[in-house]
Amino acid sequence: MRRHSFERDGVVFSFLDAGGDGKPLLALHGHWMGASDFTEVADDLSPEWRVIALDQRGFGETDHGAAHHMAAYVGDAVALLAHLAIAAPVPVLGHSFGGIVAYHLAAAHPERVSAMIIEDIGVNIQDDSTPFVTHWSGTFRLRETLEDRLGPRLAPYLQRSIRRTKDGWTLNFDPAEFLLSEQATNGDHWNVWLQSRCPALVLSGSESRVCDRAELQAMAERRDGTEFARLEAGHSIHIDARPEFVERLRQFLDKQHP
């Protein structure tokens, strides 16, 4: 995947594009993560699919400090597709935070979304990670010190969110800004989820500590044209069980885009 950039309303966005002649698929990452987390998935789906992954505002190599609200996240995704001159509707893969943006995008811009893959995120979001992430702030002389702060459970998933600066090691997002994004995505999203009409696949990680399986199953049961699948994985299914994730993704996409 090659890295590119574009500007929207004074904010410079970074994104990865697999390129090629494959059908485009938009990928939206979860909180604490970035576009680079989809690199291996993009390789697996090539050449049939051209994965385009956005560093959402405040994360990765995209500008930090911009306003955080749902309309902005949705507008950023639309702006990326417009920047690439992609006019036809595309499937959207959203992990966690990215999944919330994906179903809001499908509801607000049905002409942009041909199908949704929602990876381990529900529609009744009430999170407060303040006690958990505040001690991640700052720059650390040793990478190992920052990894110790993240803890043994999360550090393996945030390897691509750690970057080197002249003063040491830090995260490529500000924990305080992440909390603003978390607040912006909290709420009851049931009505938005039920507004869209495109086919959808809801994926649940069997060992996820983030989502309730019953809620994810209810999302599929209450919405027409929606499938549900449970894979042996934690919250980041595309990392924990990538081969099974990609196979399930291909099965779904092949039905929608033969």
Rank of each mutant, 00 (worst) to 15 (best):
T39E: 13
T139N: 12
T39M: 11
A241M: 05
V11D: 00
D120K: 09
S206W: 08
H238T: 15
A241Y: 05
E182W: 04
E7F: 14
L80I: 14
L150R: 15
Q159G: 11
S96L: 04
L26A: 02
G19E: 07
D174F: 02
A229V: 04
A72D: 08
A88W: 14
R213Q: 07
L25S: 12
P110Y: 04
H238D: 14
Q251V: 10
A233L: 09
A72R: 15
S206L: 10
S236Q: 13
R57M: 03
T170F: 06
W169T: 00
P175G: 05
M1A: 13
R8H: 04
L142Y: 10
V101D: 12
A67Q: 03
F252Y: 01
E182Q: 09
Q183C: 15
L180V: 07
S129M: 06
V202Y: 00
F97Y: 00
L84W: 10
G65T: 07
I118V: 10
D17I: 13
V11N: 05
L54I: 05
A229H: 11
E182P: 07
S208K: 09
R209A: 11
L158H: 11
L231I: 06
I86M: 11
W136E: 03
S14N: 06
L150T: 14
A87E: 12
D120Y: 09
I237T: 15
S96N: 05
V74L: 14
F38P: 11
K23V: 02
A88H: 13
V123R: 02
A220C: 01
V133H: 04
A218M: 07
F15P: 08
G234H: 12
E61I: 09
L84Y: 13
P110G: 06
E207R: 13
D224F: 01
H257P: 01
M1T: 06
M219Q: 11
D224I: 05
D224R: 01
A53L: 03
R209Y: 03
E177H: 15
G65F: 00
G58F: 05
E111P: 08
E215S: 14
E48H: 06
A214C: 07
T145S: 08
G60E: 03
S46G: 10
L150F: 11
R57F: 00
E232C: 02
Q126I: 06
G60M: 01
L142W: 14
H189S: 08
A218S: 10
R112C: 01
N124D: 12
M219D: 08
I118F: 05
E221Q: 13
F59N: 09
G205N: 03
S129D: 03
L84Q: 07
S129L: 00
P243R: 08
T145I: 04
D63V: 09
S196D: 07
R250I: 11
S208T: 09
V51M: 11
W32L: 07
E207D: 02
D63A: 10
A176P: 02
T145V: 10
N124S: 12
D167Q: 06
R223E: 13
W169K: 01
Q126R: 09
E177R: 15
W49S: 08
D128A: 01
P152A: 05
S114Q: 06
D120T: 04
L54C: 04
E7W: 10
T39L: 10
D55Y: 02
D224Y: 03
L203G: 12
R223I: 08
H135D: 04
Y103L: 15
E144C: 11
L231T: 13
P156Q: 07
V41K: 01
Q159W: 09
H238E: 11
G168E: 04
R8F: 01
T145R: 08
M1W: 05
D17F: 12
L150I: 13
